[in-house]
Amino acid sequence: MPKLEDLIELALAAGREIMAVRAAGFDTQTKLDGSPVTLADQRAEAVIESGLAKLAPGVPMIGEEAVEDGRIPECGARFFCVDPLDGTRGFAKGGDEFTVNIALIEHGEAIMGVIYAPATGELYAGDPGHAVKAQCDIATATLATPLTPIQAAPRPAQWRLVASELSGRNPETEDFRTSVNAGALVHASSSIKFCRVAEGAADLYPRFGNVSEWDAAAGHAILSAAGGGIIRLDGSPLRYGTNPGDFLVRGFVAYSNEDAKAAALKALR
């Protein structure tokens, strides 16, 4: 099996592809579900798929673009879950909030994950009991600072919420914020929201709306390594690959600690 450092290197390589496409210019197409896709998505996923095949021969990969193309392998007890470019909509508009997400799933649990933001150089990674972050050189997509341990925050005086820039501006999210008596809501795009909870900058990340498993898996692994976790809106743990062919997550709440989880469960009742 690959080590966390192997997945970090693969995420950085995918980031180089994305930034090369951005520098050269690209067109945006629309997939059947109405979401955008670019050459950067496709090239980044190709780099990741090829790299994982060498690192872990025979372990299947569930990738966003592969699934769109109808290439859906049997997940089995162990598989990789990949979003090569999370935040394509913002990327296509010239924004900087997009990430490369790579996760390893074992028996339904996200146990290893990497999130890399090529335009800002932020890198987060985690495996059991070991969550880290680093700053990367944007031009070369190489580590510019050492990997530094991170940990989700203990209970604060008032809960701090982060939510999606688009889907987080809805009545359900505002009702949740009110129910947990949280402060002002901070909005962000892409999977960096999970990292904000993992590094102690936020305590809860509610998502009322559908996402795909590859949108959450890497962040889930990092957050779990930092002491937090994710529950579905019915309070059950979020697991992966349990519904063959259906990779939709119908909402969730990411939390920093058991107190935050309890507050989320109370608000969801």
Rank of each mutant, 00 (worst) to 15 (best):
A216E: 08
R43T: 08
K3Q: 15
Q42G: 06
D33V: 13
N101L: 03
P149I: 01
A267K: 05
P118H: 02
A163T: 07
D33L: 13
V82A: 02
G200R: 07
G34R: 15
E213M: 07
A152T: 10
N257Y: 09
V253P: 00
F79T: 05
A134R: 04
G251A: 14
G209H: 11
V211S: 06
V21K: 13
R239Q: 15
L123A: 00
A53R: 02
S224M: 09
G76L: 03
E199G: 01
S212H: 11
G25C: 09
A103K: 08
V211I: 14
A144F: 05
E74Y: 11
E106T: 01
G219T: 12
E5R: 12
G51K: 05
I150S: 03
D259P: 05
V132F: 00
D86C: 01
A184N: 15
I192R: 06
T120E: 07
Y124E: 02
R250A: 15
A218E: 10
K31G: 06
P156T: 05
Y116C: 02
F26Q: 03
I222Q: 02
D6P: 06
E109H: 04
L143R: 01
G70P: 03
R269C: 07
Q135H: 11
R250T: 13
E122M: 09
T120Q: 04
I48R: 00
P244S: 13
M61C: 04
V37N: 10
E64P: 07
F80S: 02
A202V: 11
A163Q: 02
I231Y: 03
R89S: 08
S164Y: 11
P2D: 06
D33W: 08
A218C: 11
G76N: 00
D69T: 10
A226F: 10
L52H: 03
S224V: 14
S179W: 08
G34Y: 15
K93W: 10
Y240K: 11
R78S: 00
H130F: 14
F194L: 10
A46I: 12
R177Y: 05
Q42M: 12
M112W: 03
P128L: 06
Q42H: 08
P118F: 01
Q158V: 14
G251F: 13
I192C: 01
V114D: 04
A110T: 06
A188Y: 14
L32T: 14
P206G: 05
F80V: 00
L147K: 08
M19G: 08
I192E: 06
L143F: 00
M61A: 01
V253I: 13
Y205P: 00
A40S: 04
D246C: 12
A46Q: 13
P237M: 09
D27P: 12
E74L: 12
S35W: 13
G228N: 07
Y255Q: 03
P171K: 14
S189Q: 08
A134G: 01
E122L: 12
V47N: 05
P73D: 02
I231R: 05
A182I: 03
A263C: 05
T178L: 14
C136P: 05
E172H: 12
R269V: 04
T28V: 15
L248I: 15
A117C: 14
A66L: 08
I102H: 00
Q151F: 11
N181Y: 12
S35T: 15
R250K: 15
I115P: 02
